[in-house]
């Protein structure tokens, strides 16, 4: 396949970027999207040009590092996959592909397609964990009875990889799907209930401080999430937050 690429180039966080056109030929439909980017970068390096910076790590759809906005959608045109799992067979010969970084003030561009998503780390640090005594007297988790329905919901919420596609697609750049998944994965389990009140209050406070927008329930985040995290989590977080605010 021969493709025309329009890619956001930005030297650093302080410079203003622009879309730059590239042509790439002989792209195999079996390549992953990131492999296509690797080929393009090799060409740029061979011409002594600056390669395009983009985030990637596991390339197995687990780590949540890849973050491109491809043809108007985070992670591109395929459903329930990350950019690293997207294959070039999803495109046709002669297509123009528009590639941009995830856009949100809370995710500032570092270079080209690389954005700083450490806001998510700070939200996690504010309460996205269970404090547990590991002195040797810890109760075996398997001995704690948990309703199957809750275990399933908690697991589904825990599959969030924190890639930021929810923020990238939301018209308000809201992070509520991510935060609600992290709140839900603990609040549904007995181990997480002990700190549930502080967790939701602290995580939402941090989310607001990071400058994400407000959720208006458009549902775009749920559609674009590569892990299919449900909007139901946001309603649960709202409930948890209201309960915690009243008790506070």
């Amino acid at each position: 396949m021969n493709l025309k690429l329009k890619i956001w180039r930005q030297k650093n966080a302080n410079s203003s970027g622009e879309m730059v056109d590239y042509n790439i030929s002989d792209v195999s439909p079996d390549m992953s999207f990131l492999e296509m980017m690797d080929v393009l970068n090799n060409e740029l390096i061979s011409k002594d040009q600056d390669p395009i910076s983009f985030d990637h790590d596991c390339r197995e759809g687990i780590c949540g590092m890849c973050s491109m906005h491809i043809n108007g959608r985070p992670h591109g045109p395929d459903d329930l996959v990350t950019t690293c799992q997207l294959h070039m067979r999803k495109f046709k010969d002669g297509d123009t592909i528009i590639i941009e970084p995830f856009r949100a003030d809370a995710f500032p561009v570092i270079k080209d397609l690389v954005v700083d998503r450490s806001a998510f780390d700070r939200i996690q640090q504010a309460g996205g964990f269970v404090s547990i005594n590991t002195s040797g007297n810890t109760q075996d988790a398997n001995t704690i009875p948990i309703a199957k329905e809750n275990a399933d919901k908690a697991f589904d919420a825990a599959t969030c990889i924190g890639c930021g596609a929810c923020v990238a697609t939301c018209k308000n750049a809201s992070a509520m799907l991510f935060v609600s998944a992290k709140v839900s994965q603990f609040s549904l389990l007995p181990q997480g209930k002990v700190e549930a009140k502080d967790r939701v209050l602290n995580m939402v406070k941090q989310m607001d401080e990071e400058g994400f927008g407000n959720c208006t329930n458009t549902g775009a985040c749920e559609v674009e999430c590569p892990k299919g995290i449900s909007l139901e989590n946001i309603a649960r977080m709202n409930r948890e937050y209201l309960k915690a605010s009243i008790k506070d």
């Binding site: 108007g72 941009e100 856009r103 308000n172 458009t218």
Partner: peptide, 29 residues
């Protein structure tokens, strides 16, 4: 107030954004 805050959460817009993942009315309340 919400509209102003939400708009300010993404000052640099996408050059192209597909609107297929949500309804027109939910985006234009």
């Amino acid at each position: 107030i919400l509209e102003i805050k939400n708009r300010s959460a993404r000052k640099v817009k996408y050059s192209y954004q597909s609107g297929s993942s949500s309804s027109w009315i939910s985006r234009n309340m």
